[in-house]
Amino acid sequence: MISNRSVPVNAILPHVYYEDVAAALTWLRDAFGFEEQYRFSLPDGTVHGALVRLGEAHVMLKSLTRAAASPARIGGYTQNVMLFVEEIDAHFARAEAAGARIAEPPNDTEYGERQYVAEDPEGHPWMFAKHVRDVAPEAWGAVIARNG
């Protein structure tokens, strides 16, 4: 994968909240190709959380708490996670075939990405992208912060 100064890839572990983590695990595997790394359950056997991986990116799936909600419950987005994949068009075809609602079809951006956005069954948006050009942020109008 090429590098793109406008969209760096960083180490971060987002937590995405679901009403049904077990169902989310299955759907995310089938539609987006995530691989389960591990899961943990409540005393009653309900899956409470799971770590999944796609390429080099990891995402923690968690069950809802009093302080967390899924888009299905609140009727709007709570986050948008961007993950990088090498075969973006094949990834899109897989997600679409699995029934993902496509919020934004594949498109090439002015800042050097080919990307699309698909929603999972609970309404979480997942953005998938591939660096297709190295573009300086100034080239598309970003203002570089000068610290110190």
Rank of each mutant, 00 (worst) to 15 (best):
H124I: 04
L42G: 11
L64D: 03
A95P: 04
Y17V: 03
W140T: 00
A90V: 11
Y18N: 01
A11K: 15
R29W: 04
N107E: 15
A50H: 00
V135H: 03
W140E: 04
G45K: 07
D89R: 15
D20M: 03
G49N: 12
G55L: 08
S70W: 06
T26F: 03
A95W: 00
Y77Q: 08
A69M: 09
K62Q: 14
A68L: 08
E19C: 09
Y38W: 14
Y17F: 15
E122V: 06
Y38I: 05
Y111F: 14
F84R: 02
A50K: 02
P43Y: 03
M82R: 09
Y77S: 10
R5I: 00
R53T: 02
E19H: 12
L28H: 09
A98C: 08
E96N: 08
F84G: 00
A95V: 02
R29P: 00
L25E: 11
Q115A: 08
V117Q: 02
R101G: 06
E119C: 13
G49A: 15
K130Q: 14
V85D: 01
L13S: 06
A50T: 06
D20N: 15
A67Y: 07
D20C: 05
R39Y: 09
T26G: 10
R101P: 03
G45A: 09
M127H: 06
L61F: 12
I2Y: 02
E138S: 14
V81H: 02
F34L: 08
D30W: 05
F32L: 15
